[in-house]
Design a protein around this nucleic acid. Structure first.
Lengths: 231, 231
DNA sequence: TCATAAAGGTGATATATATCAATTAATCAC
DNA sequence: GTGATTAATTGATATATATCACCTTTATGA
């Protein structure tokens, strides 16, 4: 699985985690020495829920889905991972197990960094520790939103929120090539795939979105936002 | 609201947060100087969602509910707070706003500690920072469980989980005086209060629990666990 | 290129759970 | 203590959404 590193070093990496800016050159160098790259094809599992959490993960290219394997093989997709973001579940600091699974939604180049090194830097570098807490807090805030989204909205509201999330946070554009299948959108919103199809069709009929095969184009974002907020 | 401190100091407090053990005597003293106490009656709001997050909260006595005010005034209770646990939402490190509301479920003695002081100690004391991350991680893990509980289980499973949570994590006993109303249990499980009543009755008929008014006694915990795990 | 699988889609039906309406029990304020 | 609120309970009904069965289209790979 692990291969020759294709990225020169963390020092020069353009996709690196923002929080690395707080590390000293020496620390960054040390980090770089405990780094391993690997590439994955679409559908391959990068991190398996329950396995020992010995590394933090970053993507240098591609997209992946972060999901909890729940009851009776039913998955719950927590978020979509993209380059520049730390992927490390809360289990790392609690039971040293991965809280969730991560699998590639496209060809992915991944960077694994020893969790022990992370831990060391948290202890030694206060700015880095604070950045880490901020990062975890942002994720936590998102989870809270997801919780409200899933529990308190009806289907159109739930779907609308996810479409906005994908456009704003993942693709940075209102027109994108959807990497998630209808079934997977369902796993993000706690909906059956058939329901996803139907609501998406409704949105299309109302002129809110355009969905040709895997291409999604948001036509009326204000309306979509309204649907999302209203529930 | 703020009053004369009734607790001598953090140095001697028996209800203090475990993570304070990593602070030096000097730091602990500093902490103590930025501490304010207040007491609340049942039903009073201790922290209001959206308000500026300038303090971390601890309870020195009593219980409180931590809840998100969602859409159309519908609440989602995240957890029950008790003495010895840090109460600080993810918003503190993101937008300096309280992510959730906290209100007293009984008479509560509360301790507010300046968030700036916390922040300072995270930067200066690596052990403290790590403890903070561990604490946040534990909460995050719980939220993930709650998410699965709410989305993937049917009503009996959801209710069973909450009863086990209350017995194990809050009361430390299988027999307890329930501080939550049926409506509030519903707000923890995303169920209507009527459904809570009905399932609770079913549990009673099956000899799994005994519920007289606000007294709850778990009679068959193994069965309750099974129901919770099965979904 | 054809065969096979996987994803997308549609209508009919089932069901878990909320909502509504009304009654009874418990708690609170004076 | 006693009326007034609030919470708990019960049964009847409504509804959102899942499930099922099936068909169509699009990918995949030998």
């Amino acid at each position: 699985m692990f291969e020759k590193n294709t990225i020169g070093s963390c020092e020069t990496c353009t996709k690196r985690w923002k929080n690395f800016q707080y590390l000293t050159p020496k620390e960054l160098h040390y980090l770089n020495e405990h780094r391993y790259e690997a590439s994955f094809n679409t559908g391959e599992i990068i991190i398996k829920q329950g396995s020992p959490a010995s590394n933090a993960l970053f993507l240098s290219s591609g997209l992946a889905k972060v999901y909890i394997e729940g009851i009776n093989g039913k998955n719950l997709i927590m978020s979509i991972a993209k380059p520049g973001r730390l992927i490390m579940g809360p289990g790392a600091y609690v039971n040293s197990r991965h809280t969730y699974s991560v699998s590639a939604l496209s060809k992915v180049q991944a960077c694994f960094i020893s969790f022990e090194v992370f831990r060391k830097m948290v202890k030694e570098n206060g700015e880095f520790a604070e950045g880490m807490i901020t990062d975890i807090s942002i994720k936590s805030l998102r989870t809270h939103n997801r919780l409200i989204n899933i529990t308190q909205k009806k289907m159109p509201g739930k779907l609308a929120e996810i479409l906005i999330y994908l456009a704003d946070e993942i693709y940075g554009s209102d027109e994108f090539e959807m990497v998630l299948s209808r079934k997977e959108i369902g796993e993000m919103t706690n909906m059956a795939k058939e329901s996803v199809v139907r609501i998406l069709k409704d949105f299309e009929k109302s002129g809110i979105v355009l969905s040709k095969a895997s291409k999604i184009k948001i036509l009326d974002k204000d309306k979509l936002k309204l649907i999302s907020e209203r529930g």
